[in-house]
Amino acid sequence: MKKVFATLIAGLFATAAFAQTPATPAATAPAKAEAAHTKAVAKADAKETKAVVKADAKEAVASDDAKADVASAKADAKATKAKAHHKANKSKMKADAAKADAAIAAAPAK
């Protein structure tokens, strides 16, 4: 239940971050790249959290069914969490690369 509340709170902060209006009406290219980066990172975090919660729920259901299945469920949950973490890191790296590319494109040539 704690993880569900943590997920809901994380979602609340993520929506609050994107619901704010910018102070300047015209956003520059680096600001847009930063916003895209932040959105991609938040999305990756949300997907990872969702996968972890789902894996925990699956483990809890399996533990109610039988003691023999607990070890199998824990192993599956661990693998699922690791996979979700890897996917989230991969998404974050892509977002970082996109942000760097946008920064390079926005920099004036000397």
Rank of each mutant, 00 (worst) to 15 (best):
A57R: 08
P25E: 09
K92D: 04
A23R: 09
D76T: 03
T7G: 09
A102S: 11
S91R: 07
V53W: 00
A95F: 07
A17L: 13
N89C: 03
A19T: 10
D76V: 01
V53C: 05
A36K: 15
E48V: 00
K39N: 09
A14Y: 03
L8K: 06
A6M: 10
V61P: 00
D76F: 01
D45F: 01
K78D: 12
K90A: 12
A88M: 07
A26S: 13
K58N: 07
A44R: 00
T21Q: 11
K3R: 08
A26L: 12
K90M: 06
D64G: 15
A97L: 10
T21G: 13
E34K: 13
K78Y: 00
M93H: 10
E34P: 01
K50H: 06
V70R: 07
K87H: 05
I104R: 14
A46C: 02
A35P: 03
V61A: 12
K32T: 15
A36P: 02
A40N: 05
V61G: 07
S63Y: 00
K43F: 04
D64E: 12
A105Y: 06
A16S: 12
A103E: 15
T15S: 14
A105K: 15
A109W: 09
F18P: 04
A79V: 06
P22N: 11
L12M: 14
T28N: 10
I104A: 15
Q20C: 09
N89W: 05
A35S: 13
A103Y: 02
A16R: 05
D45E: 11
A46N: 07
T38D: 15
T24V: 13
A62T: 06
T21K: 14
A16W: 08
P22E: 11
A97M: 08
E59Y: 03
S91E: 11
T38H: 10
N89I: 03
K83H: 03
A31K: 06
H37F: 12
A14M: 13
K94H: 10
T28H: 06
A103S: 14
T80W: 00
K3M: 12
I9R: 12
K74W: 00
P30F: 05
K110F: 13
K50I: 05
N89Y: 02
A95D: 04
A6R: 06
A97P: 04
K3F: 07
T21V: 11
G11Q: 04
